[in-house]
Nucleic acid binder design. Structure first.
Lengths: 181, 181
DNA sequence: ACCTGAACACCGTTCAAGT
DNA sequence: ACCTGAACACCGTTCAAGT
């Protein structure tokens, strides 16, 4: 990549982070380009779809969460590992309002730029779930896809301003449904 | 209301039902007015906000669901009444894609045209929950607001095309969290 | 009283023209 | 090779002008 292009790319990503943290994942791309002081076409050149932009923005966090799942699996009880990881992934999505719907859509859309990231995250969760299941700590009629959907539902609830105060409580309720009594 | 106005109102509502069943609650209002063969201003005159339109559209169903809760409370076991009603409200929202978010937003927005309907529905659910709790059939650390949030989360999941196939399964999982073992 | 549609301020997306 | 912004086709919302 040419040096000026690289600079634009980096700057766009930095501004995108600010704007999306501010306004959510459905922020205006036009506004974003404007704030980055860059032509609208330049934004589209570097990020042909909104999902490509989100992917670039969240890539690092996705990888960290995946790595984190591996760590937890080897350092804690199966139950503790699963619950801690769930707490962390929910906390992460909480920062990026409106990111849940595109992630859900991407998981069954192999052409989406977000597809790989979501599959990766889902697999990380599935491993922790499976571990908890073999230890007899999680119900066995749930699979990784179900877990991903439950995470998405919780993340979506967190995005609804009305119920942010009961977020922790609802987290506990759903976790109790996943775990074995 | 003048006769011509009444006619426009009724026709708009009939077309709105078709369009929103087709395209979801965020369908284009412009398109809707066009298909109703009516000026855009006429739509806004009768339904000053999108929520006012949704309210008019869903009013009957809201009332039916409320009445249904009363029926169930007196004709079935507490657990059966609650679960049946939850199934019915989820089935209802399934028809109106994208209606969950405005409903969640409306419940803490007293000025919203949807506010009353949502409060009414939430209260109906709360009564069934409370009944189940007094019969020792539902966990007692959940209140009507939590129940409403869990319903919304399930309804939202149903809207995500990817996971519609596991909808029933996830319904069962969350119900199992609400009920006492 | 009610209806109409132009007007305004926004979008997302594409692409010819520039450097 | 990359950037720019006008152009196009859409929105939601308001409101002067018509009947």
């Amino acid at each position: 990549m040419r040096a000026d292009a690289q600079k634009n790319y980096d700057h766009l990503l930095a501004i995108a982070r600010i704007v999306i943290l501010e306004q959510g994942a459905d922020a205006s791309l036009r506004d974003l380009a404007r704030r980055a002081g860059v032509g609208l076409g330049t934004l589209y050149r570097h990020f042909p779809t909104r999902e490509a932009l989100l992917e670039a923005l969240l890539r690092t966090s996705f990888d960290e969460l995946t790595e984190r799942a591996r760590e937890l699996e080897h350092s804690r009880s199966a139950e503790d590992a699963l619950v801690t990881w769930l707490r962390e992934i929910i906390a992460f999505t909480h920062n990026y309002r409106g990111v849940t719907a595109p992630m859900m859509a991407a998981i069954e859309e192999p052409n989406s730029a977000l597809h790989g990231s979501c599959v990766q995250l889902r697999a990380a969760g599935a491993r922790l779930l499976s571990y908890a299941q073999t230890q007899g700590r999680a119900r066995t009629d749930i699979d990784g896809d179900d877990l991903f959907a439950l995470i998405a539902a919780l993340a979506w609830l967190n995005d609804q301003p009305s119920h942010s105060s009961r977020a922790k409580h609802l987290f506990g309720i759903i976790v109790s449904a996943i775990l074995k009594i």
